[in-house]
């Protein structure tokens, strides 16, 4: 796939290079004699102050892509077999490991789903927050602790001064996720990757945490990559969306457009298969079949065995991610679809 030509416009709003750009990324996992093709040519970009939601089910490659960006892929067995990742104009995959380590935490940071297992249970949260400053900025223990309290205030943990010496298990799930956010924000990075940051939280707490994250992002003008399977969360916070399936991006679109007029049968199927809160629906539309097996991705379009519209070409030719045009033939900004029949899907 000659993805460079077909990728959506990569330039930022003012024509400069985007904050982060992933080009034709391929990642494989080799376990004994089987190869799992987790990422098979992903292209996406994020600008400063922008939120990109990467939407996909388990096995779609959304988290693996993020790990490749952060440089925390388990390798072996994971291996980047092809592609480039540009961060602030620099191809970070070609950097030596010690250079990449300096990027992590300082200029790009990650928030994980499970805050409890991401925090060290035997160290106080204040110490763990302060460690960022001691490791990257060489602050003293006392200065670091003051910074930790400031951060905890910032993510609105009540009574930060009293709680700075508490251990992770003494905080509730929502508070722990705030601590994770504080840790990610500590060095004011330019890019934050949040991998299912609210999936483990209750609905009312989820809303608090998502709001906090969005607010801090605006304040610091950071780029945010939000990885999620939840179409509701995406609609609430994203600017643009990349939908992944079997290690590829099948559709990209600005958030409003995607929900109004999806241009890929998978996206459409997902939207139709979730029940609504504000009305009692009829029988749900169900995408047939199973999520793909990454060791045996079907030939042609990976979605073809589950697609109601699949025709012969879908079983043989891998569809490229091509720009989506309106009725009058003009390109719809930010929109692309990897479906041979995107026109029918968009208009049908």
């Amino acid at each position: 796939m000659t993805s460079l030509e077909t990728a959506p416009a990569n330039a930022g709003p003012d024509g400069t290079a985007p904050l982060l750009e992933v080009r034709d990324l391929h990642v494989e996992f080799k376990v004994r004699d089987s190869v799992t093709k987790a990422v098979n040519g992903v292209n996406y970009s994020v600008n400063a102050g922008e939120t990109l939601a990467v939407l996909g089910e388990s096995g779609s490659g959304k988290s693996v892509t993020a790990q490749a960006i952060m440089g925390i892929l388990d390798s072996p067995p994971g291996r980047i077999t092809k592609g480039q990742i540009f961060f602030q104009g620099q191809d970070i995959l070609s950097l030596p490991e010690n250079e990449r380590r300096k990027l992590r935490g300082a200029r790009m940071a990650m928030i994980f789903q499970d805050a409890l297992s991401s925090l060290n249970p035997v160290l106080s949260v204040g110490f763990q927050l302060g460690e960022m400053f001691r490791a990257h900025q060489g602050l003293t223990r006392k200065e670091a602790k003051a910074k930790a309290i400031e951060l905890m205030d910032r993510v609105r943990i009540p009574a930060a001064r009293q709680r700075v010496n508490d251990y992770p298990h003494q905080f509730s799930g929502g508070m722990r996720q705030r601590i994770m956010i504080a840790m990610a924000l500590a060095l004011e990075p330019d890019l934050i990757i949040a991998d299912e940051p609210t999936t483990a939280l209750d609905v009312t707490v989820q809303a608090q945490v998502m709001d906090l994250l969005a607010e801090l992002q605006r304040e610091y003008n950071m780029g945010l990559i939000l990885i999620t399977h939840d179409l509701g969360v995406v609609a609430d916070v994203a600017d643009k969306i990349a939908v992944m399936y079997a290690g590829r991006i099948v559709e990209t679109a600005p958030v409003h457009e995607l929900y109004k007029r999806p241009a890929h049968p998978y996206t459409r199927g997902l939207l139709d298969s979730i029940p609504r809160l504000d009305q009692k629906g009829q029988e749900l539309y169900a995408i047939k079949g199973l999520p793909p097996n990454l060791q045996q991705i079907p030939p042609g379009c990976a979605f073809n065995p589950r697609c109601a519209q699949a025709r012969d070409i879908c079983r043989t030719d891998v569809p490229a991610l091509v720009p989506v045009t309106g009725e009058d033939g003009t390109e719809l900004p930010g929109r692309a679809s990897a479906c041979h029949f995107w026109k029918e899907t968009l208009r049908g």
């Binding site: 209750d202 609905v203 609609a235 609430d236 958030v255 504000d278």
Partner: peptide
Amino acid sequence: SAVPVPDPEAREHRERIILTGDV
């Protein structure tokens, strides 16, 4: 009101009651 709804139009118009604190 806290349930995220898969409808970006709704986000501007829906009333959100954000509870404070934890259970």
